[in-house]
Amino acid sequence: MPRLSAKSATLLVLAALVVVSPLFFPSGYYYRVGALIFVNGLAVTGIVILTGYAGQISLGHAGFAGIGGYACALAPVHLGLPPALAAVLGVLISGALAYLVGRPILRLKGYYLAVATLGFGILVSMVLNNERQLTGGPDGIIVPDLGLRGLLKDWGLNISNGEFWYFFCGIALLIGAWIALNLRQSPTGRALRALHGSEIAAQTVGIDVARLKLQAFVISAVYASVAGSLLALQNKFITPDVAGFMHSIEMVTMAVLGGAGSVLGAILGAGVLTLLPQVLTVFAEFEQLVLGLVMMLMMIFLREGLLPSLLRKLRGRDE
């Protein structure tokens, strides 16, 4: 029997989840929850590339999500760009900032990136909170409609707003996962995982470690930016919370919970931590307590994350 590659298997599972899940939705509200899971899954897929593949960590990725989100709010109004192009502008700004911030830092040890990104995230959220004339401050700002659903209606495809964003974000997640999985088995991805394993050895086989880390950082910033744009566009509203410290922490926690080295695992982690507050209303009260605990417990007892550990166990039983 020809064996399914890990990449195809992952994509099939994801596609099946996107298509089949709505059959079990108790109400239309769950399209919204689903879309939220996909958006978070997309952001966390970027963390997989940075943390899972390359072994680096960012504590300020929400900053890039904020840039992506506010680009969609501001560029249409101030620059007259259509919202879709505004998202592209967000990607360009996020990528450029990631490059500028990452370049001096990624030559050094791991915790420098953690601290600098922490500072970066705080800075972005501070700008968004304080530049009231531009961003509306802590109260947030309205985001123009993407306009695609109207276009679909003109073409005779009439779906609800919830359904539209559910499938739109689902497709975005599938594309994001496909790209991350492509990268994993590619020469660049192999070099990233190699430098994660041993920087010294990676250097001696000719890998320009600093340059590759920078590439991973920029790519993952682009993921966060797109996720931020999708979030802003579907909510038609955005507040500085999207760029906040706790949002950065959420992303990291989602990744390490499911498994930062595995695209499917990280998306699973995003699913669990997105669903939790929906199911348990008291969760919001204890969010920090839970996130902090999950981070510590996973790193001490289950460093690979839930899904890879589970798969390893199952495989162990087969043999």
Binding site: I179, N182, L183, S186, P187, T188, G189, R190, A191, R193, A194, H196, G197, S198, A201, A202, V205, G206, I207, Q215, I219, G261
Partner: peptide, 26 residues
């Protein structure tokens, strides 16, 4: 590279020959 297979370790040695445009890899 403990986090990779034996084959992947050997392929990593070919980095200079196999590297190329990141976009093509993505």
């Amino acid at each position: 590279f403990q986090n990779m297979t034996v084959l992947e370790n050997a392929i990593a040695g070919f980095h200079l020959q196999e590297r190329g445009a990141v976009l093509a890899d993505l």
